[in-house]
Amino acid sequence: MPRLRTAILISGRGSNMAALLAAARDPAYPAEIALVLSNRAEAAGLARAAEAGVPTAVIESRAHRGDRAGFEAAMQAVLERHGIGLIALAGFMRVLTPGFVERWAGRLVNIHPSLLPAFPGLETHERALAAGVRLHGCTVHLVSAGVDEGPILVQAAVPVLPADTPDSLAARVLAEEHRIYPAALAWLAAGRVRVEAGRVTVADAPAPQAALVNPLPEPAPLPTPSHRIG
């Protein structure tokens, strides 16, 4: 079966992009990373993608200031030119319009550094510490028109430690992001994801385990995190 041509959208260093690129080097992985697109020409992730042999493109959001429709039309043209069927947002710091989201409904996925619906938006680690939560984590979700909203594919949780700073907490969460995003993208690219009444089911996935903090099994062609929530 041909692999689904996938674009990764970035705005910065591309840490999660690198995790997806690494997973996609396996020929059995169902998504082919066919494009890395950024809204910032200076995004460090572009060089990392080029080094990996992945085509890159830039649509400068600054050149379309006040014209979100024009910006997204330019992105859409590039995506179509590269034959893209699936989009993974990886630190893409632009809010997409409802029209663009609807066009890509079910084929647009994002990772967010919190256990949504808690702490949408920015500065999630600082806010988690300020709120005194005992668990924090990350969420992979299908994108809907709201900011950091949409059906949840998978979540990973980490404990918040008494001595944590935003940086130390962020580092532990990021390690989990790098585990669950490739797994969730694989499920989506392989057509294993179904959404009913806003809830996701994944075909052939085992039942959720009781433990919230538990690493994904390694190796596995389509890894299933045992700390999946919901």
Rank of each mutant, 00 (worst) to 15 (best):
I180S: 04
A128H: 00
L86Y: 03
P27Q: 08
P219R: 14
E51V: 11
A43E: 01
R172G: 01
A7K: 05
V143M: 13
A203Q: 15
V143T: 07
G146M: 04
R68S: 12
R134N: 07
P225N: 11
T97E: 12
G146E: 12
A170E: 01
G91I: 03
A184Y: 06
I8W: 02
T124W: 00
A7N: 10
A23D: 11
P182L: 11
G12I: 01
V160T: 00
A211D: 14
E72N: 08
A63G: 13
L185V: 13
L116W: 02
A171N: 07
A186T: 09
A34D: 07
G12W: 00
R194P: 01
L79Y: 02
V95N: 09
A69N: 06
A145V: 09
R103F: 04
V200L: 05
L135R: 15
A131I: 00
F92R: 03
L222K: 02
R48Y: 03
V58F: 04
E126F: 02
H141Q: 11
I111R: 13
N110A: 12
I111C: 05
P223A: 13
V158P: 00
I33W: 03
A210P: 09
G146P: 08
D148A: 09
A73E: 10
N110K: 11
A205W: 10
H125I: 00
A220R: 15
G83Q: 10
A57K: 10
V54L: 07
E177L: 05
I33F: 02
Y29V: 06
A170P: 01
E177V: 01
D148W: 04
A41K: 15
G12T: 01
V109C: 05
T56Y: 07
A41V: 10
D67R: 12
L212R: 14
G146W: 02
I152E: 05
A220C: 08
P117I: 06
E218D: 12
A118E: 03
P27S: 10
G230K: 12
A22Y: 05
A118M: 04
